[in-house]
Amino acid sequence: MGIIKVENIRVFAYHGCLKEETKIGSDYRVDLKVKANLLASAKTDELSDTVDYVLLNNIVKEEMQQASKLLETVAQRILKRIFKEDHLVKKATVSVSKLNPPMGGDVESVTIKMTERRKN
């Protein structure tokens, strides 16, 4: 087994429960960690034998563009697509952070983190 991380994916999106958030948008940070068997790719040196981190990045960017009220909903969509589109992933963790959230205080970010395992 091995771990692939894609960290600090920065996107601008329109998530939130407040009407203003869905109009003006916010900056977000997404971090991914996936667990997969990387032994084959270490031997073959072929992209087709590993988890493509470009694919992971694209999944995040695409799912972040679909507005949702809750970050949990966005994270769940990202996890679902990762397992659907890459059969090598056995476990995935996604963290979605809203930077400078409108909370009436000086808060750098709020983050939700969700983990799923492949169900076989």
Rank of each mutant, 00 (worst) to 15 (best):
M103Y: 08
L79W: 05
A40E: 00
K61N: 06
V11I: 00
I78M: 04
V60T: 03
N58C: 04
E72P: 03
T93H: 13
M64D: 03
N100F: 10
S41W: 00
K43E: 03
G16D: 02
E46N: 05
I78P: 04
A40D: 00
G25A: 02
V34I: 10
L18C: 10
H15T: 02
K98E: 00
I82Y: 10
M114Q: 03
K35E: 06
E108G: 11
D52F: 09
E7C: 10
V11Q: 07
Y28S: 04
S97D: 05
G105Y: 11
K90F: 13
G105V: 09
P101I: 00
R118Q: 09
T50E: 00
E116Q: 07
S97W: 14
L18N: 06
D106H: 10
Y14C: 05
L18A: 10
A42K: 08
K43S: 03
K91Y: 13
E46L: 10
S68L: 02
N57A: 03
L55C: 03
G16F: 06
A40W: 07
Y28R: 13
V51A: 00
I82D: 02
L38Y: 02
K35P: 15
D45T: 01
K69G: 01
M114R: 15
K69S: 00
K98F: 05
M1T: 05
L99H: 12
K113A: 01
T50D: 00
N58V: 05
T22Q: 11
S109Q: 14
Q76R: 11
E85V: 13
T73R: 04
H87D: 11
T22I: 09
V60Y: 09
Y28W: 12
I4A: 03
E20T: 08
S26G: 07
L71E: 00
V34Q: 14
A13Y: 01
L32M: 11
T111A: 06
S48N: 14
I3Y: 13
K113T: 03
L39Q: 08
D31V: 15
S41Q: 01
E116W: 15
K98V: 04
S109K: 14
S97N: 15
K91N: 07
Q66Y: 03
K90P: 13
H87R: 06
V110N: 09
Y53R: 12
I24A: 01
E21N: 06
L32A: 05
E7Q: 10
R81H: 02
L70F: 04
D45E: 02
I59R: 09
L32S: 15
K23Q: 04
N58M: 03
G2H: 09
K33P: 01
S95I: 14
L55S: 09
E63Q: 02
L71Y: 03
K98N: 06
K5W: 15
S97A: 14
I4G: 07
Y53S: 06
E7R: 13
L38W: 01
K113M: 10
H15I: 05
V34F: 06
L18F: 12
A13S: 01
R118H: 07
I82T: 08
T111W: 13
L71T: 02
K61F: 02
V110L: 11
E20M: 11
D49Q: 08
Q65I: 03
F83P: 08
